[in-house]
Computed example of a mutant assay.
Amino acid sequence: MRNSVFLLRNKALGVLTCLPLLASAQALAIAVPDKPHLVTQGHAEIKVAPDMATLSVKVTARQSDSLAAKEEVDTKVASLFSRLASLGVSKKDIDSGNVITRPDYQYSKDGDKPKLLGYHAERQISIRLYDLEHLSQTLNTVLEQGIQQIQQVNYGRRNSDQLRQQARLAAVAHAQELAEELSQAAGRELGDVYAIEYRAPRTNPAPRHYGALNIKMASEETLDASYVQNDIEFSDQVDVVFVLK
């Protein structure tokens, strides 16, 4: 069977690729009619460059009492907010969780009574960055505030819902296009759609995990070509059963 590739190019959205697939109804576990029919898989993917990133940051402190630990975390967060504002990051693009405090014990292997080392406080901060050219500077700004827990950087697209919808519609159109091509080649007329089975889309690339990071490491990272995030893929797939006349 001849394969074909359909490409739709759009400067704003990147490249949309549809690849023809054909599979049996038994393999797909989709309902089929008790008469001549055709089953096709429609697949589409859109690859685009990211235009935003979300930084997940943990702000921590340990002090002799819980209040002092909380105050140190709050001071770091306030200082971070001020520095981020100077970079053009709006408060509405920052999500800040409530502070959590807990005692920090050291446990002995000999079964002795745990020793209280102090109190640990932490707050989770999410920062949405819409200018990726400032990503390195933002990472350094976070670290300069004494915050060593940049946990991950998750790249994304602001119009992700629109791109997912476009991939979904393109997958359906591809299933229809492939069915028309195959039925015509077989000398049969394509009838109505009997059933459609929607398949869950692929997940986007996993976020980059950092863990404890220092300023020197962040600076070295900016010199590494692997720091540049690859295109984000939005893909979708449907199985469609057509009746043959």
Rank of each mutant, 00 (worst) to 15 (best):
A31F: 01
K58Q: 12
D131C: 04
A27M: 11
T138Q: 02
R83Y: 03
E144Y: 00
K113W: 06
S79Q: 14
K76D: 05
A69I: 02
A53Q: 04
E72Y: 00
P103F: 03
L55R: 04
V48Y: 05
E45C: 07
P20T: 11
A29L: 12
L22Y: 09
G118L: 04
S126R: 08
D112Q: 14
H134W: 01
S64P: 00
E133H: 09
A29P: 00
Q145T: 12
D93Y: 05
V142I: 11
V48D: 12
I94D: 03
V59R: 03
A25R: 06
R102L: 09
Q137S: 13
D95L: 12
S86F: 00
E71V: 04
A29Q: 11
K58P: 00
V99A: 12
T138W: 01
P36I: 12
H134Y: 04
G88Y: 03
F81E: 15
G146P: 01
P36H: 08
G118R: 01
Y130N: 15
D95N: 10
V32F: 01
D51F: 03
Q145A: 11
L28G: 05
E144P: 00
Y107W: 04
I30W: 02
V32D: 06
H43Q: 10
Q63Y: 05
Y105F: 14
N98H: 05
G118D: 06
L117N: 14
N98L: 05
A69K: 06
D112P: 00
A69T: 08
D104Y: 09
K47V: 12
D131H: 08
P114A: 13
K35M: 11
A85L: 03
H43R: 12
Q26T: 15
K92A: 14
A27N: 12
K35P: 01
